[in-house]
Design a protein around this nucleic acid. Sequence first.
DNA 1: ATAGATATTGGCATTAAATGCCGGTACTGG
DNA 2: CCAGTACCGGCATTTAATGCCAATATCTAT
Lengths: 152, 152
Amino acid sequence: MDSKDRQILRALQQDGRMANLELAERVSLSPSPCLRRLRNLEASGAIRGFHADVDRAAYGLPILAFVQIRLERHSDEIVRQFEARISTLAEVLECYMLTGGTDYFLKVVVSGLDAYEDFIRHRIHTIGGIGSIDTSFVYGTVKRSGVFPRID
Amino acid sequence: MDSKDRQILRALQQDGRMANLELAERVSLSPSPCLRRLRNLEASGAIRGFHADVDRAAYGLPILAFVQIRLERHSDEIVRQFEARISTLAEVLECYMLTGGTDYFLKVVVSGLDAYEDFIRHRIHTIGGIGSIDTSFVYGTVKRSGVFPRID
DNA sequence: ATAGATATTGGCATTAAATGCCGGTACTGG
DNA sequence: CCAGTACCGGCATTTAATGCCAATATCTAT
């Protein structure tokens, strides 16, 4: 992982479908070594994958919510069950464990507030062992770059 | 935007570099109309782009923090300045406006806790007009799918 | 400083995929 | 029932990815 690898990673964070020929020119390499570096970055796990960035609203899921959840207790059984159930929920795009006041942080998409009510009542509350739920809805985006800073 | 378009979108959320031949087979189309649909989805904005999913730690930024920020006041001037400055910060990968107790929600990557201190002291506090900052560090990932649920 | 060893590069031939065009087919509205 | 529209599939062409080889740069130990 040298400066050139990180250049490649940043370029592909901006445009993950960039042709190898263009990528090679951008990082000042010829196509062959550039492609080899890319394949190595994939094989080593530095690149976990490539994903399309899809417009929520165009797809039909205009509501984006961040949900902070605390468990009642942190027994193995409750934690295990919570994480297992969360993993199966299609509406949950991401779920992280956090330091601080809340245990879990969820990124959730739904088609409307009625669907959100249904999600909380039937998908979340039925898990059991949940202490508190705090929902924030996203009503604007200031920045959405996803490109790591240079550290060279 | 029909069911087949959404199938294409979900497939590319899973693997954004999937070859058109494979994508076509997966959604039961021949390559030509499949590629045409893809280009239309890009042109219409339903696909905002493609991005590599890069391992933070492998790149050299092992710390991921979620930062909740409240402004002192919500005057046009303070809001405008805050958003302009946030947009220039390379450590901030995403920034959303939220309903509820906090005004802004930031996703931040740094190389260590010393770099985080530097970020808060010199990048955030110097903006001015900030009421409160609440940081949560991510110490585990339960789910990270990014694939929208079927709504057909 | 130098020689050997290792890793990385660039070019080229081959293979595979994307692209653009065409005719055919299903669907819609009058 | 017919005309118009939109979408599909197949094929020829262009473009990119891949794998191999020789050459160059980098690193290490003496």
